[in-house]
């Protein structure tokens, strides 16, 4: 069972539907026991970094996530959910993230349209289980204005080009981050979610 962390983050319906389609059981929860008993965790997210961190802290979910990450449980962060894994963000002033992966979140500052909205290609830097059946230059769906920078190059699985080299898919041991929305990326996104679930068992 996958625990989808409930901290009031926007639209998680599509994610739940994608998991159901793949016959993966999931529960939307903020209950510590349920999260600890799960096989894997997904941190979804749409919205602002500071609000999200504030909400996680007020429910003590930051501590649970850090504890579960250290225990080696597979954790997937999607979009803002992934950004929360990093050390800091300067969205709305400098603030601290969960610190599960090295790096910081900054606004896309290049001379391109922001938000980075639409289908963009993945440049796969290294193949891991999460990239199974995902060819290089595959299109996935992005909607974001901030991106991760100063990350550890060893964590980089795939990038996407939008003014900057955007870390699109990252992995640090049991921690996986997707800047795009796999639940909105057609069959390719479904394959990525399936690959994540296969890391669990």
């Amino acid at each position: 069972m996958i625990a989808i962390v409930d901290y009031g983050a926007g639209n998680i319906k599509s994610l739940q539907i994608a998991l159901t389609t793949l016959s993966i059981e999931s529960t939307l929860t903020r209950d510590e026991t349920v999260i600890r008993d799960s096989n894997a965790i997904i941190l979804p997210g749409v919205g602002a970094f500071q609000d999200a961190m504030h909400q996680l802290r007020s429910d003590n979910l930051d501590k649970i996530l850090q504890e579960q990450a250290a225990a080696g449980k597979p954790i997937l962060g999607i979009c803002l959910g992934m950004q929360l894994f990093y050390e800091t963000s300067n969205e709305g002033g400098l603030s601290t993230g969960l610190g599960l992966i090295k790096g910081k979140i900054e606004r896309i500052n290049a001379n391109v349209k922001v938000p980075h909205m639409g289908w963009n290609t993945l440049q796969i830097r290294r193949n891991k289980h999460i990239t199974t059946n995902i060819p290089d230059q595959t299109y996935v769906y992005f909607v974001h204005s901030y991106y991760a920078t100063d990350i550890d190059n060893d964590d980089l699985i795939a990038t996407s080009q939008h003014g900057e080299n955007i870390p699109a898919l990252v992995q640090h041991n049991n921690i996986i981050g997707m800047q795009f929305h796999p639940e909105k990326s057609g069959d390719v996104g479904m394959q990525l979610i399936k690959n994540f679930w296969e890391m669990v068992s």
Binding site: L22, W119, N133, T138, Y139, G186, D187, V188, M190, Q191, K194
Partner: peptide, 10 residues
């Protein structure tokens, strides 16, 4: 434009 994989992937 986005090309769509021709076969069911998963």
């Amino acid at each position: 434009v986005r090309s769509v994989p021709s076969c069911q992937l998963y």
